[in-house]
Amino acid sequence: MFEARLQQGALLKKVVEAIKDLIEDANFDCNNSGFSLQAMDSSHVSLVALSLRADGFEHYRCDRNVSMGMKLANLSKILKCAGNDDAITMKSEDNGDTITFMFESQNQERLSEFDLKLMDIDSEHLGIPEAEYDATVKLPSSEFQRIVKDLASIGDTVEISVTKDAVKFGTNGDIGSANVMCRQNKSVDKPEESTEIDITEPVALTFALRYLNSFAKATPLSSHVVLKLSKDLPIVVEYHIENVGRLSFFLAPKVEE
């Protein structure tokens, strides 16, 4: 059987809220090392990869590898019934056709159980090579969210360019153009405001803002977001979930014809 308890159930709620508009359904894969998901959006332009480590759960048991297909909209409906301070336990029997979500309030006075029907989902897994990226930028997740939201009111695409001192976001549209530059700032007194750049090669790539705005729905999961860029490769937008795992998004760049 599979059983996993997450004291901070809100994490699971936030993860599902962050991905439910991007992907319709997905297989959640569980094995000894943890709970994971990989799914592409319907246009195969972006990909979501979630990984929650077994040791990030207070209790984790997975007797055999299972893949549980769920419609994200339905999962979201159920998780919205969990309180923000509730612990969430997920349970499924081997070869079961449902997954049970148990919500426990902090004082243990309220216990609720919701069963979600599992579905068979055909999913294509892509092999994502472990790569060294030309540039890695770590910036406050709220700053990234603001930038992609602001730029989307001007244009449809953003050019992200990274040099050793700064990362620049630029767009053009019918009404004009916009540029936002964030300088490297390894602020020690306010680590939550730091912007750190690690670069081997300056890089500039163009991406659709619509997807970046969708990724930014993961902002509540982490104080920082990590952007990884290499010439002619998809960008990685990564939210680290402290002590539990990470939620990564991949987005294919715009390519010159």
């Binding site: 195969h44 332009v45 972006s46 892509l126 092999g127 994502i128 659709a208 294919a252 715009k254 390519v255």
Partner: peptide, 14 residues
């Protein structure tokens, strides 16, 4: 004019 790339052009099947 730039066109949108698809992920399969960058990553192969696992």
């Amino acid at each position: 004019k730039a066109s949108q790339g698809r992920l399969e052009s960058f990553f192969g099947p696992s």
